[in-house]
Design a binder for these strands. Sequence first.
DNA 1: CAAGCTGAAAGTGTCGACAATCGACGCCTA
DNA 2: TAGGCGTCGATTGTCGACACTTTCAGCTTG
Lengths: 230, 230
Amino acid sequence: MRAMSQPVGLPVLAESDLVRQVARRLTDAIVQGRLAPGAKVAEAAVARELGISRAPVREAARLLESQGLLRASPRRGFFVRELSAQDVDELYDLRLCVERHAAVEAARRLTPAIRDGLRRQLALMRDLARHDDPALIVEADYEFHRLICAASGNGRLLRLFDGLASELRIVIGLIGRLYDDPEEIARTHEPVLEAIEAGHPERIVAHVDYHLGVARREVGRLVRSLTPAS
Amino acid sequence: MRAMSQPVGLPVLAESDLVRQVARRLTDAIVQGRLAPGAKVAEAAVARELGISRAPVREAARLLESQGLLRASPRRGFFVRELSAQDVDELYDLRLCVERHAAVEAARRLTPAIRDGLRRQLALMRDLARHDDPALIVEADYEFHRLICAASGNGRLLRLFDGLASELRIVIGLIGRLYDDPEEIARTHEPVLEAIEAGHPERIVAHVDYHLGVARREVGRLVRSLTPAS
DNA sequence: CAAGCTGAAAGTGTCGACAATCGACGCCTA
DNA sequence: TAGGCGTCGATTGTCGACACTTTCAGCTTG
């Protein structure tokens, strides 16, 4: 029993699992905006491009369907999900609900390591604001919120947040520049971290509400400007 | 423009969609406890039993994997997800977070129709309590909570709730009888509905918290009794 | 008797193929 | 000329097949 071939701790490399790889590629293409909302995801084309058959592509598409990134239209194929203004509203409603909880829990379990991680991320955002690369800033913004969710200690909550964020990035990738003033991003995050460090639940909720409220208005406005009617 | 072929009101018939049908069957089998946690879901066996090939079964399994009902172990197949006590804790944490929000929103948008629906469901639960059919009671319980989420007006929140409930029912189906006193179920729901009708956010949250806290303790206790160690 | 080895059986991962269906184009009709 | 109809190419849904991996029972060995 002791002589079994020991794992050496190397990351299992490329462990087949073609389906997961395809799912990741498709996800990347969507959140990076290379696959626009409403675009058709032709199985054969994807399969050809990746040099594989259609079966794994279909399975990956099912995974993404369940996550809300794709919409399956029987006999017609898979399409990148289109988000209406109402969809964005719903997503931000859920983010509010989830991130409030995450932030309060994060404050309860705050360790020095986690606190430092959040501070570093905030500093990173301040740095990035000066270089003004919209994609990187959105990424850093997302990561800050993700850290808070991770700090909640609830793995499912984190996965839920990832799902909501992915869906939102369907449209955010489209918008490009999310804020006019990049430095404002860092500024609006600061009170949230301060509140978490201070640890008063009401203040935490209030600041998360305010911060997400601002983001929601921005994104909502931009989405509405992209889809005039309906 | 006026002469376009009018819909005749015929119901769209059967719309095959094998994958979706398989997914539903598997889901039912899991939440009804016919497929126990940890059980292997052999593609070939399922396909044979349903008289179809393995491809649609695999796609359905991917859907359920994304929903947390199945776990994919590469080269080994799909297994019904096993829930630890911590998993149950996480799930109730999310339910709390989601249902608080749903209840408050439901109160804000309460219409007579919705209010009556909730009252009817509560009455149904009182009826069922007298007949003492555990499965039906769990079903009615679930439906009451679902109505509240539906009343929130947020479709994604409803889907999220469905997902959480499905996962929880992996273990609840196992437990069989959830409460010693079936009538207690109806009783603990009453204050929640009253609070929603009264419409004070704090009272709503307080009652939802209390009600879910009770359920969580019950389920947690039972799960812990089923999985002695770790 | 326990542990390890060996081979076969079973099951998964992926592929290519085929029938059914959808969308588009052009034709016919009023 | 506008609108409906039939045909054709392209794509999806499903299937059976094949290679490879895992599993397990039985045998061997210390």
